[in-house]
């Protein structure tokens, strides 16, 4: 019973409506209620946010950096996904 460590939680904060939640840091808490209280006390002392998400770290599945090549490099040469790939006459100012 004793010396059991509190699980780690990740905290995400929406700084104002219209923006996405962003990861701001982590903390320790026994459960979601405490994680929410702690997140408020630790990470919003300077009006940093209007909404908080907390998620226990162990519930996050992260990509493996060793797979970086196969995961992300294939996207590199797909220039045709970007608008600049397509040529338009200079006279056309807006598109």
């Amino acid at each position: 019973m004793s010396n059991q460590e509190f699980p780690i939680w990740e905290v995400f904060i929406r700084s104002k409506n219209g923006l996405e939640h962003r990861h701001v840091g982590s903390l320790h808490a026994t459960d979601a209620t405490m994680a929410m209280e702690n997140a408020r006390d630790v990470y919003t002392r300077r009006e940093e946010g209007v909404s908080i998400w907390v998620v226990e770290s162990k519930n996050i599945t992260a990509s493996n950096p060793e797979n970086q090549g196969e995961l992300f490099e294939p996207a590199k040469d797909k220039a045709y996904r970007h608008p600049t790939f397509y040529e338009l006459p200079i006279e056309l100012k807006h598109m």
Partner: peptide, 11 residues
Amino acid sequence: PSLETDIALTN
């Protein structure tokens, strides 16, 4: 008793 509670009580 923990950093988090320390911060909370000071708030």
